[in-house]
């Protein structure tokens, strides 16, 4: 059962440079089906549109970002609701309660001049009417922190008194305090040290297994994906090019880009020669026509230059967008 769907989602940045309009095709025709009770990883390199994709999934669409086409649907009360058809009030209500967001830098969520307690209070009051503070606010928050293995004392400290990893974990606690059905995490471990990264990932896993909800996790770090994700979608130049279970992505990558990506990952204890894909990712302002990867692909044919391959199921549960496996084109 899917909990979040997109259909032909296109989200472009429109940049006006002194009267000249430019379109940055950050998310270009993406279909997603994210299931209940899974951790879905979105992988890709910087500038491939993965952050834009999750911003759009969260409904955080502000100029210069514009949704050009397509739908994002949440499953609520057994029905699918298109979020772009909702008014702002409804959007505010479901945000954090139904779907929440863990941003890259924790400082944008925690108020730097107030104690952590204040952030929690502010957050909960926006969604719940609190009559009895002790019963309805303090105790549930403390229970929540204890369940996540965080010390309750952090409520009385200021964000700058906590280490970066602790702040990030507080952000996770804050994003999950209303027990959302979907959690979107944008590079939650970037800029943290490896030990801290592990702490944050451990926490996210704990949250997911206790709430049985869905986590959509974006990171460029394939090691993190290998450790936490159930399924992984690989993005390249604004398009989803492969999607499969974590074991399949690492063990049997189909798309040439994914093969390069997986093949180039260094591991401790392995000194064998590894190469990168040649060339560099294309600009999203004028991406190559046809398959976006063909200029860097050593198996490209004339067909790849002419048409865009569609993301289709090649093996059960394993989708790829490549003419090596299927001739299905995107209709444009």
């Amino acid at each position: 059962m899917s909990v979040l769907n997109t259909e032909g989602l296109k989200a472009y940045y429109i940049i006006d440079v002194l009267g000249e309009k430019r379109y940055v095709r950050a998310v270009d025709d993406v279909d997603l089906e994210i299931r209940e009770n899974e951790i879905y990883g979105i992988a890709g390199e910087s500038g491939c549109g993965k952050t834009t994709l999750i911003k759009t999934l969260f409904g955080m669409v502000e100029p210069p970002l514009n949704v050009m086409d397509g739908k994002v649907k949440y499953k609520m009360n057994a029905e699918y609701a298109d979020i772009f058809a909702m008014d702002n009030k409804r959007m505010r209500e479901i945000r954090w309660e139904y779907i929440s967001y863990i941003p890259q830098g924790s400082m944008s969520v925690l108020n730097p001049v107030q104690k952590v307690r204040y952030s929690f209070e502010h957050f909960i009051k926006a969604h719940r009417r609190i009559r009895n503070k002790e019963e309805e606010f303090i105790k549930p928050v403390e229970r929540h922190l204890q369940a996540l293995g965080l010390p309750v004392q952090i409520l009385d400290s200021y964000p700058h008194q906590l280490s970066g990893g602790m702040r990030q974990r507080v952000t996770v606690a804050l994003a999950t305090v209303l027990q959302p059905k979907i959690i979107i995490a944008d590079e939650p471990t970037t800029a943290l040290d490896v030990v801290m990264q592990r702490g944050v990932i451990q926490l996210l896993k704990d949250v997911q297994s206790s709430l049985k909800n869905t986590i959509i996790m974006v990171t460029h770090d394939m090691g993190i994906h290998a450790n936490i994700a159930d399924r992984i979608g690989i993005m390249y130049a604004g398009k989803m090019i492969e999607e499969a279970s974590t074991e399949e992505i690492f063990g049997n990558p189909l798309h040439p880009y994914t093969q390069y990506l997986i093949g180039s990952l260094p591991k401790i204890g392995d000194k064998s020669y590894k190469t990168s894909a040649p060339g560099a990712p294309p600009s999203l302002i004028n991406p190559p026509e046809g398959c976006r990867f063909y200029p860097r692909c050593d198996r490209a044919t004339d067909e790849c230059k002419a048409a865009i391959p569609k993301l289709v199921e090649i093996e059960p549960g394993h989708k790829a967008a490549c003419f090596l496996y299927s001739g299905v084109k995107e209709d444009e």
Partner: peptide, 10 residues
């Protein structure tokens, strides 16, 4: 603590 890029090595 390193996240090894291998799902068999979690």
């Amino acid at each position: 603590s390193i996240a090894q890029p291998d799902p068999r090595d979690k």
